[in-house]
Computed example of a mutant assay.
Amino acid sequence: MNDSEVPAFWQALGLPGLADVHVHFLPPRMLRRVWAYFDAAGPLVGVEWPIRYRWPDADRVAHLDKLGVRAFTALAYAHKPGMAADLNDWTLGFARETPGCVPSATFYPEPSVTSYVSSAVSSGARVFKVHLQVGGFDPVDPLLAPVWGMLSDAGIPVVVHAGHAPMAASFTGPEPFTALLARHPRLTAIVAHMGSPDYSTFLDLATRYERVALDTTMVFTPFFDQLVPFPLEERPRLRDLGQAGKILLGTDFPNIPYEYADQLQGLVRLDLGDAWLRAVCWHNLWSTLGLTGSHAL
Rank of each mutant, 00 (worst) to 15 (best):
H164P: 00
A165R: 03
P166N: 07
P166C: 05
S170H: 06
F171T: 00
G173L: 00
P174S: 05
P176D: 09
T178H: 14
T178V: 00
A182L: 14
H184L: 09
H184E: 05
P185W: 12
R186A: 14
T188N: 10
A189I: 11
A189H: 13
A189S: 15
V191N: 11
A192V: 01
G195E: 07
D198W: 10
S200Y: 02
S200C: 02
T201M: 06
T201E: 13
D204G: 12
D204H: 12
L205W: 13
L205G: 09
R208N: 05
R208M: 03
R208W: 11
Y209K: 10
E210G: 07
R211H: 15
D215H: 08
T217N: 11
T217W: 05
V219R: 01
L227G: 00
P229H: 01
F230Y: 14
P231D: 06
P231L: 05
L232C: 00
L232Y: 01
E233L: 04
E234D: 15
E234F: 04
R235Q: 08
R237M: 06
R237T: 10
L238W: 15
D240Q: 12
L241K: 01
G242Q: 10
Q243W: 12
G245L: 11
K246Y: 11
P254S: 11
N255S: 04
P257K: 07
P257L: 06
Y258E: 10
E259T: 10
E259A: 15
A261W: 08
Q263T: 14
Q263H: 15
Q265R: 13
Q265K: 05
G266A: 10
G266Q: 08
L267K: 02
V268D: 04
L270S: 05
L272V: 08
L277P: 08
L277N: 03
V280K: 00
C281T: 14
W282D: 05
N284D: 12
L285D: 01
S287F: 03
T288F: 01
T288Q: 15
T292C: 02
